[in-house]
Design a protein around this nucleic acid. Sequence first.
DNA 1: GAACCTGATTAACCTATGTGAATCGGTCTT
DNA 2: AAGACCGATTCACATAGGTTAATCAGGTTC
Lengths: 240, 240
Amino acid sequence: MQEPLDVLIAKLASIGRLLPEYETAIRQLPIRVSQLDRGDDAVMEGQIMGHCCVVIEGLLQRHKHMQDGSRQILSFHPAGDIPDLQSLHLRKVDYTLSATTPTTIATIRHSDMQAMLRKHPGLTDLFWRDTLVDAAKFLTWMMLIGQASAEARMAHLFCEMFMRLKSVGTIDSFEFPFKVTQSDLADALGMSIVHANRTLQELRSAGLLIFASGQAEILDWPRLSELGQFDPAYLHLADE
Amino acid sequence: MQEPLDVLIAKLASIGRLLPEYETAIRQLPIRVSQLDRGDDAVMEGQIMGHCCVVIEGLLQRHKHMQDGSRQILSFHPAGDIPDLQSLHLRKVDYTLSATTPTTIATIRHSDMQAMLRKHPGLTDLFWRDTLVDAAKFLTWMMLIGQASAEARMAHLFCEMFMRLKSVGTIDSFEFPFKVTQSDLADALGMSIVHANRTLQELRSAGLLIFASGQAEILDWPRLSELGQFDPAYLHLADE
DNA sequence: GAACCTGATTAACCTATGTGAATCGGTCTT
DNA sequence: AAGACCGATTCACATAGGTTAATCAGGTTC
């Protein structure tokens, strides 16, 4: 039977050992499911949070703005992610979470979460681990944005999304939906929209990747991951 | 009386509420103090860790390398930081920690740390919070490296170091030691050595900042923090 | 089905930053 | 004190990627 938090269970299982009793505890969490349209904010920079959210279906993006209005997308969050789990201990958030596509989320009150974690120290460790994996991705992205070419960054992003979606069982083929615009890609990779377009065309004409109207198809995984210097170790997946 | 872990106590107090019983527990942790020369590695990418380290004195840097050998410095860690606390739950580290200057560190076994945290859930939360603050810095740096000009990034780095050193009581004036080379700065900010040099000169001739032979002096804090778009909120300091 | 959007694409041009290489100035070594 | 380094600095030149703006294509609205 499909329950909303199934995706969270799958996500946690992908990064660590999830005991049956933990699974039970998670399923007993009171949640409130809600629906976001593209562009809606789930969390806004500066807000003081009393709850956090699980992506049930769709895609959220975490981003931050400079004074001049330019936007850096920090991460994409497909189903299973808890993109604002940090708010449990950093109540005032310093980023904005918006829906990249129409998205369903489940919100969990911090107090309920905390009660559960106090009861299960091992589960605390697993959630802690989740925030650490989240942080580990930033290390890699900082390196890429600071040092890698536009082509390498673009390649890496698609490799990462593929691997993450596969690890939680959302997809099982090299062709998968990734409903972002070229402008989103540009803002995520720290490049201009025009250059994002140029870069995608280079990858396409090199026969590595096709991306059009929200659909990605990886044509040559070995060469794409080579170009993107993609080594999945930083995702700290459990099954390896 | 000066004890090695005093700096850790000060650091934790700077980001949250540290109860007296926690302080006692921390002071009872068995530690092994050791000395690093400039360039020595405390932790190497790929290592499986059974312990983590506290910087007692000096400066460590966390960095990662690309295949072509280029290096991205991800963060600097002055006294009080536990730069590899993540290893508690991500045993295999995906970065290297090296001494930027001669540095004293104290190592703590994971098992001792874990025993302490199991006994004090509130302290677990505080250490968890520390790793989250660490991660929050990366969000900001990703935005800066992706979107900000070389000048803004350089300005921001000095603002951050000043604020962090001040918050743990290591310094109390706008003139402070920051023993890095221009090459370190370049690798931290994702720019070439030559451009780091140019940028420092611009900041100097604008009367904002002097940096020479490991000594920084902020001449005009209002304008420097304005230029660097520095808002200390992302450091999540307790006293605000 | 005309007007409108939003996102993709192209072109022409511009600039911030990178590269390579030479010079300079301390400081450590022998 | 003569090398030998390492880091800082300068210069000349190269280029990845940014900017602006125009056009195109598909979908939506009334």
